[in-house]
């Protein structure tokens, strides 16, 4: 177990370092350095001004020096300075990440709950028509764009009926509605995969044995089928973190909430490269961390993982 965990953590760190390197190289491929790009969104600036600012932020150094200086800073949690506000990138992101986390985590819990409810109802119902309806819900959820649902709900709830504000005001609805909008979207892939793997599990002989022993449908579903079907759903849940982040950005914009969404929007429109760099690195890190977590949870769902040689991702087993 220890070897497995160490290996997975080592791989995760490697991926983050590679991501950092790729981001660094991608920035070098842009014509002009971050300072020139940032200042050029305004009126013409003279070269002395550009040179001066480049010196202040260290962009006049040779590339290897910049690379290691930035990497060294990263190890101390220093991701450089936002060119637009002069504020450290870490502080800028840290200031708003709480709001995004609250949204994303609540939406994630909603998504998992929604997916479980849909799948349980679809599996346990005796009505074929209802089952058909329920199994068609996840594709519908996936097809509805986050911004569209958000716009329609705000148009109805805020502008037409006046029951909530267009702006976040701390009321229950001002958090619940965006959480629901994002949750619906994120639940779709989880529910789809879970439905499919539940189907597979139900075709296995042990289900027949359980039925023959007289176990109730609900008992079979909650005590046996769900755990066996959870693997692929956990994998897809790890992958939805991307959807969750992108969805948060869109949801925040639609609902005028503060958070990473507003920062991304600002960073891109003002061409604040160090801030964009920090945001991309954060996204990569979150992605890696969540997938690491899923990898570490896997042996708990399926002990066979540890009996294999421990190389590569456990998901290669195709449980």
């Amino acid at each position: 177990m220890g070897r497995y965990v160490a290996l997975r953590i080592g791989q995760a760190l490697l991926v983050v370092w590679l991501a950092y390197t790729v981001i660094f190289l991608a920035v070098q491929l842009l014509p002009g350095d971050p300072v020139t790009i940032f200042l050029s969104t305004d009126a013409a600036v003279d070269q002395a001004t550009i040179d001066n600012m480049k010196r202040q932020y260290g962009y006049d150094q040779p590339l290897p020096v910049q690379y290691f200086a930035q990497l060294g800073g990263l190890l101390h949690g220093d991701v450089g300075y936002s060119l637009a506000s002069g504020e450290p990138v870490a502080a800028r992101i840290g200031g708003v990440i709480g709001s995004t986390l609250a949204l994303a985590l609540s939406a994630f819990a909603t998504a998992v709950g929604l997916a479980l409810a849909v799948v349980a109802a679809a599996t346990l119902t005796r009505s074929a028509a209802l089952r058909k309806l329920l199994t068609n819900l996840p594709p519908l959820f996936a097809a509805v764009p986050v911004f569209w649902l958000g716009l329609v709900l705000l148009e109805l709830l805020s502008i037409r009926w006046g029951v909530m504000s267009l702006f976040p005001d701390g009321s229950f609805l001002s958090l619940a509605v965006p959480v629901f909008v994002l949750g619906v979207h994120v639940s779709a892939p989880i529910a789809q995969v879970l439905l499919k793997s539940i189907d597979t599990v139900y075709n296995q002989p042990f289900i027949d044995v359980l039925r023959a022993k007289g176990a109730s449908a609900a008992w079979i579903f909650f005590h046996h089928a769900l755990k066996n079907a959870a693997g692929p759903a956990a994998t897809i849940t790890g992958i939805t973190v991307g959807t969750l982040l992108a969805g948060s950005v869109i949801t925040e914009t639609v609902f005028a909430r503060s958070g990473l969404g507003a920062v991304v929007l600002q960073a891109v429109t003002t061409q604040d490269v160090p801030l964009v760099q920090g945001l991309v690195l954060l996204t990569a890190t979150v992605f890696v961390a969540v997938n690491l977590l899923v990898d570490l949870l896997y042996p708990l769902l399926d002990p066979r993982i540890l009996k294999s040689n421990g190389q590569g991702s456990p998901r290669a087993l195709g449980v």
């Binding site: 716009l151 148009e155 805020s158 502008i159 006046g162 267009l166 914009t253 639609v254 005028a256 507003a262």
Partner: peptide, 19 residues
């Protein structure tokens, strides 16, 4: 001063008197 990045809400925000 508030922010409405979403262009589709701006007319409705004024019409409903929220801004």
């Amino acid at each position: 001063v508030k922010y409405l990045p979403e262009v589709a809400h701006r007319a409705g925000a004024v019409q409903s008197g929220q801004v």
